[in-house]
Design a protein around this nucleic acid. Structure first.
Lengths: 141, 141
DNA sequence: CTCAATGCAAAAGGTTTGCACGCTT
DNA sequence: AAGCGTGCAAACCTTTTGCATTGAG
C-alpha cells in the first residue's frame, strides 16, 4: 500500500478543539477559537488550532469560508456533499444551505463561456434574527 | 456642504495603473500589476498601486475578488450595478455575469432563515478556452 | 520505543500605515 | 502656496513552517 493511513492520534488538544467547535456550532476564526479555548482554561497552542482545523477541512469534516477581509471562518460540517453557508455576521451562527439550481447556474454560465474545471465560492452573510432586534450582537452562537 | 469632494488629481502613476488595467482587461493581483508596471518601465510604487486600486473599488470603477488563498484580484468594472465574475484561474481573463435568479435565491434563502441585511459573494473560477488546451497558462489576458 | 503531535518563535505573504518629500492644482 | 499623492520602510494580521520536545499507541 502506498498510503497506510497515518492513523490520527487522540490528543487532548484535538479533543478540546473538537469539543469547542461542536459547542459553538457556528463560524469562528482560528484566532477566535484559540481565544475561547484559553478562556475556558484549555491549553492549546494557536498553531495546533490551525493545524487541527486544516486537518478537519482536508478530511471534509469542516469547511472554511473567507470573509471579505481575508480572515477565514471555520465550522464543523454535517452535510456531506458540496454546499454553501449562510452566516450571521454578528454571532457567526451558520445555516448550511444547498442550492442545486445555483450550482447548475454557475456551471452553465462557465461552460457557456468556454470555461472548464469550474469551481465556485458562494457565501451569504446577513444578520440573524437573534442579532437583529436589541443592541445585542455577540452572543447567540 | 460636508463633502466638498476632495477632487482627485491626475498623476502619472494613476494614469499608468489605469492604462494597464484597461489593457489587461482581466483580474490581476496588486502585486502582479505592480510587477507588470515595472516591466514596462513605469515607475510606480507598490503602495500606490494598492492605494489606486482601493480608490477605484471605493468609487465603484473596479472591484475586488478574493482568491481561495486570500489574495485579492482587481479589475475594472464596466457594468454598473451588482454583478459577479467568472475568472480564469490561469490567465485572469474575466467575464462579468449577472444572475438575477441567483441574487433572488440568496436573498430568499437568507430571509427564509430570518436573516436581514443580506449580502453575498459569488465567484466562479475556471480555466478558459485559451488556457485549456496546450501546456499554456500564463499569457492570454 | 517510534513517530505523529505540540508549541514556541520566526518566516511568510499580502496589505496597510507613518512620515517626509514632490507634484498637481 | 496648499494639500493631495507618492514611496520607502516598517507595521500589521493571519496563516505557515522549522525544530526540539512531548506523548499516544
Amino acid at each position: 500500500m502506498v498510503k497506510p493511513t497515518p492513523a490520527p492520534r487522540n490528543t487532548r488538544q484535538r479533543g478540546e478543539v473538537m469539543a469547542l467547535l461542536q459547542e459553538v456550532d457556528g463560524a469562528r476564526s482560528a484566532q477566535q477559537l484559540h481565544m475561547l479555548l484559553r478562556q475556558r482554561g484549555a491549553k492549546v497552542g494557536l498553531t495546533t488550532v490551525y493545524r487541527t482545523l486544516q486537518m478537519l477541512v482536508d478530511a471534509g469534516d469542516a469547511d472554511a469560508a473567507r470573509l471579505p477581509g481575508g480572515e477565514q471562518l471555520f465550522r464543523l460540517c454535517s452535510r456531506d456533499g458540496h454546499h454553501h453557508h449562510l452566516v450571521c455576521r454578528d454571532c457567526g451562527k451558520t445555516v448550511e444551505i444547498a442550492g442545486p439550481a445555483v450550482e447548475r447556474w454557475a456551471d452553465e454560465v462557465a461552460e457557456a463561456n468556454g470555461f472548464t474545471d469550474v469551481r465556485h465560492t458562494i457565501e451569504i452573510f446577513g444578520t440573524c434574527r437573534d442579532c437583529t432586534g436589541p443592541g445585542s450582537g455577540v452572543a447567540c452562537g
